[in-house]
């Protein structure tokens, strides 16, 4: 392995690590939502680890750009890595926001059960793990699955939010909890959006096509 290849491998490993940490945070946030509050200290610790790795990725990329002048697939990998680390870091932040917001939802269990938040949570966990798997395996069938899941998450979120609004209209005492739950759902939806962004960067690394503003249906899978 050349010195350059070692640097690229190092970058890949940091991306895998930060991706796994963010996936863990998402799982924790869903767990916190569906069952009992989780240990806040641990979440904070991982949040700070993610931030450090995000900075490390910037540093590795900066150094590769300056010293190695990468081209073609290497260049795409480094450009993609920079973008992906931003998205992953945002996913971590959103997961923490879900955990924090969760504490403000009174009568949580009733609401969670009533609006089937578990189903939404399961889908968000799945899209996060599939996104990590796509980066790792470059299996392009995952790309389609990620976008299908995102659509399903969006539909489910919109339906649930409408149901919560109806509930708040008829039972004013649920307004505070309901509003907090709507915010949580929006956070989960954003996590899903970040996953599709990551998938688009992985697609760019593989196929050298920038598709971030394309409609998903237009993308011709090779």
């Amino acid at each position: 392995m050349t010195h350059f290849e070692i640097e690229l491998e190092k970058l890949k490993n940091v991306i895998i690590k930060i991706g796994n940490l963010a996936e863990g945070q998402v799982q924790e946030s869903i767990k916190a939502l569906l069952s009992e509050p989780i240990e806040g200290k641990e979440v904070k610790k991982i949040e700070s680890k993610i931030d450090k790795l995000d900075v490390k990725i910037d540093e590795i990329c900066q150094s590769i750009f300056a010293l190695q002048q990468p081209v073609a697939s290497d260049l795409r990998f480094i450009m993609g890595s920079l973008q992906m680390s931003n998205e992953i870091e945002r996913i971590g932040d959103l997961a923490v926001s879900v955990i924090k917001r969760n504490k403000s939802i009174k009568d949580k269990h009733d609401l969670i059960a009533k609006f089937d938040i578990a189903e939404l949570g399961k889908k968000v966990e799945l899209i996060t793990s599939k996104t990590n798997a796509f980066f790792l395996t470059r299996d392009e069938t995952l790309f389609t699955e990620i976008f299908s899941l995102n659509t399903a998450i969006k539909i489910k979120s919109n339906e649930t939010i409408l149901e919560i609004i109806t509930e708040m209209k008829s039972h004013s005492k649920t307004v505070v909890s309901g509003t907090n739950l709507v915010i949580v759902i929006k956070h989960l939806e954003r996590i899903s959006d970040h996953c599709t962004n990551i998938a688009e960067y992985v697609y760019f690394i593989i196929n050298a096509k920038i598709i971030k503003h394309d409609k998903h249906e237009d993308i011709n899978l090779e």
Partner: peptide, 17 residues
């Protein structure tokens, strides 16, 4: 050529592999 070469040999050469 330097962003998306068509041939694998070109890619291998310009990326130093």
């Amino acid at each position: 050529i330097f962003t998306k070469p068509e041939q694998k040999q070109t890619e291998d050469y310009i990326t130093g592999r």
